[in-house]
Nucleic acid binder design. Structure first.
Lengths: 135, 135
DNA sequence: CTTTGTGCAAAGGCTTTGCATGCTT
DNA sequence: AAGCATGCAAAGCCTTTGCACAAAG
């Protein structure tokens, strides 16, 4: 609520937080908390599942991460890219392609404003079966 | 899989199914399964929660209902309108406006095909704060 | 009568939380 | 030294499933 400064304190620099941050920095697509946890474990980095959840939550609060909710109800995390874009996802293998189109952006905005809505966000997900999975 | 006819058998006509169907027919927005259950209970109609889930699942499979996943992870159900469209939702009061734009439809399709994706579906959600809540 | 639907309760998956301990500052 | 971060396990929520009984066709 403070106009100057977001009021969020800098988190402490721990091995676990660093590991989670690095993994998400290296990862391009969306990842679930559970997956972050097991990927770290596979890489030999032991981090408690609860800690993973807490780190991710803080990173989201800090604007470092973006989230979507999968159809299963799982929350998926992704590092925020500078520019807004959307995703084309293969529902079989999970391959993700980033899509960018200013047309859709302005459309969403226009529609919202036409109805008197402010502070507009939008989310577009296009799902299909990619060529490799289509056989 | 049968070319003529969808292959889905007509569900039996039960008090419970009727109740769920009627509630969704009367309801305009999105509702969770839990809410359907308690609304029915409030109306004096006792239907098991599991049954509510099963009815909803069948109605979705039959194309009678549309679903989205809320940020909480809950699945929300809504009766399907004949033509495909999207939603503009107020994140404060939940007011929902149906939006329809062929431009977005074809865009989604084109993008997907350009990347070799087949059997394409898409979902667009525009969220904002409506005029009444903007004060 | 046969088959499908229902109810209850248990189980399952993801996520959050309480509490004691360890590490950062 | 003081306080946030971590881990573990338990608890919470929504949803699904197994099984016996009831109802529909």
């Amino acid at each position: 609520m403070s106009p100057a400064g977001t009021g969020r304190r800098t988190p402490r620099r721990t091995r676990q937080r660093q590991a989670v941050a690095e993994l998400l920095a290296a990862h391009t697509g969306f990842v679930s908390a559970q997956r972050v946890h097991s990927l770290l474990a596979q890489g030999g980095v032991e981090v408690g599942l609860a800690t993973v959840y807490r780190c991710l939550a803080q990173m989201v609060a800090g604007g470092e991460l973006d989230t979507i909710v999968a159809e299963s109800g799982e929350v998926l995390y992704r590092r925020c890219s500078a520019d807004h874009h959307h995703h084309l996802v293969c529902r079989r293998c999970g391959t993700t392609v980033e899509v960018h189109d200013p047309h859709v952006e302005s459309w969403a905005h226009d529609v919202a404003r036409a109805h008197g809505f402010a502070d507009v966000h939008h989310r577009v997900e296009v799902m299909g079966v990619c060529r490799a999975c289509a056989h």
